[in-house]
């Protein structure tokens, strides 16, 4: 369990980090909390000749809430997301979901940027960010660009991000309405067998907006336009929820692994999606 050798870089700012990335291209990788990357390096499934530790870059840290927008620096840890009371007031689904990620030790180190940039279908933040319609800011030698979370994921470990770009921040609107993050896992600290993020807004008892996104049920997170369309305009009663679950299940494509066969995963997904919609609706 010893990784192959690498050169360790610890730049003080973005310019320094981008310079190392530009110099070494494919041979360089950034290190955030290391709790996805270091296990892969130990297994020698990731070979990283140049490792760029982002921990000293102040510009990548912190949570800002202003003008109805929440902006979170990529190096903000899951522990910090859970502890931040202003963030909890502005988007309570973040704490609800973060507490279901891994265990306390992992959450002290794991960052939101690493979780969304990693591209592992098992990560919980990508589905959550699709539910919230978050925007990811990427910075490279050519400057900055913004990519919606809903367009970011291409396949397992394949994202819109170029090798030479760093994901600097994540932003989304202050949340209104009901929310829920439901996750089925084999034990604490495990990745999801199935998980689902839902946000629902109602006016006079009628759903005006709905957003359903799922984790670990395909090789990317799945944002279900079909489920959303089913829910909007309804009162979200039992039949409406049943129809939305059926629509969401049409959008997933789970594979068999040590968490179970496909039929089992679909079964679990159906229950988790239903619970998430019910709970979000009850809070709307």
């Amino acid at each position: 369990m010893i990784p192959s050798q690498f050169e360790y870089h610890r730049p003080a700012d973005m310019a320094g980090a981008l310079a190392v990335l530009a110099e070494h291209g494919d041979d360089a990788r950034v290190l955030a909390g290391g709790h996805s990357l270091i296990p892969m390096m130990k297994l020698r499934m990731a070979d990283v000749p140049h490792l760029i530790d982002l921990q000293d870059i102040e510009a990548l840290k912190g949570i800002k809430i202003a003008g109805g927008q929440i902006t979170i620096g990529a190096m903000t840890t899951q522990h910090e997301l859970i502890a931040d009371t202003a963030l909890h007031a502005a988007a309570p689904i973040i704490r609800e979901a973060s507490l279901q990620i891994a265990d306390p030790q992992v959450r002290y180190m794991g960052t939101i940027g690493g979780n969304v940039a990693n591209g592992d279908p098992g990560n919980d933040m990508p589905g959550l960010m699709q539910c919230l319609d978050a925007q990811f800011t990427l910075e490279g030698a050519e400057g900055k660009r913004t990519v919606p979370a809903r367009d970011f994921y291409e396949a397992a470990y394949m994202t819109e991000r170029d090798d030479e770009e760093i994901l600097t921040q994540i932003s989304f609107a202050v949340q209104q309405g009901g929310y829920a993050y439901e996750k089925q896992k084999r034990k604490i600290g495990d990745y999801a067998t199935a998980a689902c993020a839902v946000s629902i807004t109602k006016e006079n008892g009628t759903v005006t907006a709905a957003s359903v996104a799922m984790t670990n049920l395909s090789d990317t997170p799945v944002f279900s336009e079909a489920a959303n369309a089913v829910l909007v305009g309804t009162s979200c009663d039992t039949a409406d929820i049943k129809a939305a679950v059926a629509a969401a299940l049409e959008d997933i494509d789970p594979t068999e692994d040590n968490r179970g066969p496909v039929a089992f995963k679909k079964h679990v997904a159906g229950i988790i999606i239903k619970r998430a919609i019910e709970r979000a609706a009850s809070r709307a």
Binding site: Y8, R10, G34, H35, I38, P39, D103, Q105, Y108, M109
Partner: peptide
């Protein structure tokens, strides 16, 4: 493999699994 916590140490006020951190960090 980052699962058991037997290697936990306290680093700058955080509980960290020291098998999942390079000394250089």
């Amino acid at each position: 493999t980052s699962h058991c916590g037997a290697c936990t140490v306290d680093i700058d006020g955080k509980s960290v699994k020291s098998c999942t951190m390079f000394a250089a960090q």
